[in-house]
Design a binder for these strands. Structure first.
Lengths: 336, 336
DNA sequence: TTGTAAGCGTTATCAT
DNA sequence: ATGATAACGCTTACAA
């Protein structure tokens, strides 16, 4: 601190200090290439010396750009709470944004605030938005895509036509999972599927079916759950009750797979000796279970980063990949 | 959409429409009480009719307030990822903010961006900030408290003197946990403590010690972990190896408690018959373990909400409780 | 290449 | 109680 209490420096003060016009300082600050290097560096020196930082509000008002990006996540209290998926994606996004000049505004959307959110997004408060969603076919944002740059991701889905999406290839991942089971000598593979109202649920079941068919195997029984542990247990019981034989079960997520553990064991089946269990998500639970669960790991960090990148491209270049598909990775542990 | 493409309405347009000055419209928008009801309602009608929404940037520039609040969370990739604690708190904060006119700006802080963050906070980009931290004694924000309203929370700690903090009463929670063990007939209680560099680690150990002392019991052995599952397993082995007898173990968090499960079992001890196990945190893991873990649940939603409330008070009234302490709740499950 | 000057949409200070 | 009228700090045609 100098002896005098110095006010926050403005662009004007920098201009004076450097002996140029405000316009020139503005150009330097914004990296306009048409500034003579000599002058540019002189201005830069003044900026550093005065410790100048542009005023966001003023800049935004004058340029009609906010410098902000919204991150919209569904409320689903339990989801964010329980789901490391969101946490990772959000963190990744925040991390990427931290390296840019954009500010990340977080919006938790509940049904009651849907309208408010839409307004917020279209009223020019942000330069673009990232929608990370669980629900499928949520076209409520469809029209928005035309008014403000939007990138859908997370576990999206039927992005509105024309929208930009980043998604994990659930179909391929499910195929890889089931193929792995087959490669490890299993031939009657049952599945605990997810809700068929959600894309991941649909795709993972489809992948299971496709691989089995292509391998010429007889499909094992199918039971449905809602991605919760208890629903997994229930589904496992249904599988057992079906009377059909099976030597492996592919669950659409780890929680359901793990929910099945105790009921399988109670039925006298040893994992993986008598029955192989394959999960999906690589949740924290999968590491500490007994036995540790072999599962498909989704590239969540990559997902978030890619979403951020696409949105920035969309904002700055008005262009982006309509669809980016990321591949999951198989994590071998002890349940197969 | 009307036939004419209508531009986004400005305060000026509303003024014209209502036949008053811009100043008056501004007053109505901001709820200034000195406006004649007749006029106020006329203006309000115009606002509704034109669908007017104030421009944040302009407002911010003119008022020198940003209408934004920063949420600063430590990077610790794994932390946010694994830790439902953060997720809940963050969600709760976002939820409360959603009901105000404040915007929530999320900042993930890594060591390399510490300076950038501090600058961001002090450069008038936000009206205040919420610091949710794991580390103890992080006084790097201490000075900041004088330049911008700050509220510390999460699992904070030694908030810089004079700062506003919201915390969970770990000491009381630990006491409650151990008392419960005693009430359920246990008399030799061991503990798997957390790092003594972190406030929660310190307080939970202290609570354990205090209750045992007051009850006139002989303390069981103590082992230390770092809040991870593996460290819990290791600590459990140490406890067993100590040769000291014990019929219960109080772990400073669920993960460590659960890490101890298998080693206790391998030692031929049944839970809770031979040994009671008490966790802390009420993590998702605690529900699905075998047996389900009895644990202390922290009021994370309340924590986030309270942080948000205090910060808003601080911003709007320049006043807030220096320290708000929230109580944890015991969740009875099957391990005691 | 650089400077001039007119906004950008509010708020806030004075008068009235 | 309401209305002029300066700011607020920056961007951006348009001139030079």
């Amino acid at each position: 601190m100098g002896p005098r209490e110095m006010k926050k420096p403005t662009l004007e003060m920098v201009a004076a200090h450097a002996g140029v016009s405000r316009a020139t300082v503005s150009r330097v600050v914004n990296g306009t290439p048409t500034v003579e290097p000599t002058i540019a560096s002189r201005v830069q020196r003044s900026i550093d010396e005065l410790n100048y930082v542009p005023n966001r509000a003023a800049r935004s008002l004058a340029s009609n750009r906010s410098g902000a990006i919204a991150l919209v996540v569904p409320e689903s209290a339990s989801k964010i709470f329980t789901d490391p998926f969101f946490g990772s994606v959000v963190q990744s996004i925040a991390s990427v944004m931290g390296d840019t000049d954009f500010t990340l505004t977080m919006i938790i959307e509940s049904e009651s605030t849907a309208d408010k959110t839409r307004r917020y997004l279209t009223d020019g408060n942000v330069d673009g938005a990232l929608i990370v969603s669980h629900r499928t076919g949520d076209h409520s944002y469809g029209e928005l895509s035309e008014k403000v740059p939007l990138v859908f991701g997370g576990r999206p889905v039927e992005g509105p036509p024309g929208a930009t999406c980043v998604d994990v290839d659930n179909l391929a991942a499910a195929r890889a999972a089931v193929s792995y089971l087959i490669d490890h000598g299993r031939s009657r593979i049952a599945t605990i599927a997810g809700p068929q109202t959600m894309r991941p649920g649909i795709d993972r079941l489809e992948g299971w079916r496709a691989v089995i068919e292509e391998a010429g195997l007889t499909p094992g029984p199918v039971a449905y759950g809602d991605f919760t542990t208890v629903s997994g247990a229930r589904a496992a019981r249904e599988l057992l009750a079906s009377g059909e034989a099976f030597d492996a079960v592919f669950a659409a997520n780890d929680q359901m797979a793990l929910g099945g553990y105790p009921v399988l064991r109670e039925a006298g089946l040893r994992i993986p000796d008598d029955i192989a269990v394959m999960g999906f998500d690589d949740s924290p639970f999968s590491e500490t279970s007994e036995p540790p669960l072999t599962t498909m790991s989704q590239p969540m960090i990559e997902l978030g980063a890619e979403m951020a990148r696409q949105l920035i491209r969309l904002i700055e270049d008005r262009t982006a990949e309509p669809l980016t598909v990321l591949q999951a990775r198989l994590v071998e542990r002890g349940s197969v």
